[in-house]
């Protein structure tokens, strides 16, 4: 049976298969939600510990 279209072929690049798998699961599913949460967390926390920029 041919592999599903979205499955990444290995070997190709340094990331190990588990990382690849995680990235694939993330990209096909909750990436949009994850990135939105990441944005909220980043902008809520970074101003307190990130110096510079003025």
């Amino acid at each position: 049976m041919p592999p599903p279209k979205s499955s990444l072929r290995w070997p190709w690049w340094p990331p190990s298969p588990p990382l690849l798998h995680a990235l694939q699961v993330l990209a096909e599913g909750p990436m949009k939600a994850t990135m939105l949460v990441a944005a909220v967390v980043w902008f809520a926390s970074a101003p307190f510990w990130m110096k510079g920029g003025r």
């Binding site: 990444l8 072929r9 190709w12 990235l23 990209a27 096909e28």
Partner: peptide, 12 residues
């Protein structure tokens, strides 16, 4: 980039 590569089905 990651989303596009997984949708394209290859990182090549």
């Amino acid at each position: 980039g990651v989303v596009m590569l997984t949708r394209l089905g290859t990182a090549n």
